[in-house]
């Protein structure tokens, strides 16, 4: 029985990892606490649902359309909000507050068009896999397969390509990055597009399983941010470590207590960790001058 929960937790953890990377791409490179990601996540879910349920596309093309639209929305937040603020030399807190505004606008626009009630995407035709006692439902199978594949591809690209190098360099030091002759503006466009991919993937894979409502974004985003922090801020591989840890932890909370205490336990762990080891599981302590 407990192994079922561990497996569920790991699969949820993969989804957290995806969203955490979507958030970290923006956070590490721009240092903006990208709360609008919660809105973008909800947007992706509703586009997916819209093209499946209303337009009648099959699941895979619908998710691809949703993915492209999400990338565009992600880019829009950069072009319409973050970049103008950066040009005005606004502080990061100011950018974050504007980001809260963007989240509010996106989520309520969606709610206005699609309503506040929960919607589901039909996934009933598919058979689950069983290994002894352990059941892996069909959506979970997709979540695991697609999630792991994407994470592996991303990590390889990050380590092996010039693009990955630029991303890591921008995360480390923007001034140095520009001194070396790279264009921050262009790289940020790329960052937001890729961030959109990860947010859309996390969103579509999740709502295919559990359905969607306009207010789900903030809760998931917070879990992803917690995953990023417990993994260790500043890198991308740590998001996966943190995501899996958090997924299993939440799942075991459900196993031992009840699902409605999940949030409290998540944050208790986060807060304890922040106090004991502010640099995260895999981070390091730096000298501050």
């Amino acid at each position: 029985m407990i192994w079922q929960f561990v497996i569920n937790g790991l699969i949820t953890g993969i989804l957290y990892s995806l969203l955490a990377i979507g958030f970290a791409l923006v956070f590490n490179t721009t240092k903006i606490f990208h709360i609008a990601a919660a809105g973008i996540y909800v947007f992706a879910a509703y586009m997916f649902w819209f093209f499946v349920a209303s337009v009648g596309l099959p699941v895979i093309p619908a998710s691809l359309v949703a993915l492209v639209l999400t990338m565009l929305l992600s880019l829009l937040t950069e072009v319409l909000i973050y970049r103008p603020l950066k040009n005005k030399k606004a502080s990061l807190n100011v950018a974050m507050i504007a980001s809260i505004g963007a989240m509010t606008v996106i989520i309520n626009t969606i709610a206005m068009f699609f309503g506040n009630e929960t919607k589901v995407i039909d996934n009933s035709i598919l058979q689950p896999l069983t290994f002894g006692d352990i059941i892996i439902t069909s959506p979970q199978k997709y979540q695991a397969l697609i999630g792991i594949t994407v994470l592996i591809i991303f990590m390889v690209l990050l380590q092996r390509t010039n693009w990955g190098l630029r991303l890591r360099a921008l995360s480390a030091d923007e001034t140095l990055f520009e001194t070396l002759g790279y264009d921050t503006k262009k790289t940020r466009v790329l960052v937001f597009l890729v961030s959109g991919v990860f947010i859309a993937l996390a969103s579509c894979l999740t709502v295919y399983d559990v359905g969607l409502d306009p207010n789900m974004g903030m809760n998931v985003l917070i879990s992803a941010v917690v995953a990023m922090i417990i993994g260790g801020v500043g890198r991308f591989s740590t998001c996966i470590l943190g995501g899996l840890t958090l997924g299993v932890l939440q799942s075991l909370t459900v196993y031992h207590f009840a699902s409605n205490w999940q949030n409290a336990v998540t944050f208790l762990v986060l807060i304890i960790l922040l106090f004991l080891r502010p640099q995260g599981i895999a981070g390091y302590k730096q000298r501050t001058v």
């Binding site: 909000i81 606004a90 504007a98 505004g101 309520n108 626009t109």
Partner: peptide, 20 residues
């Protein structure tokens, strides 16, 4: 209900840009 939230959100963005 949704519209007023949208107005708050837009107001927040505009204020942060024009008058932080």
């Amino acid at each position: 209900a949704n519209l007023r939230q949208i107005i708050y959100g837009l107001a927040l963005i505009l204020v942060m840009y024009y008058r932080p």
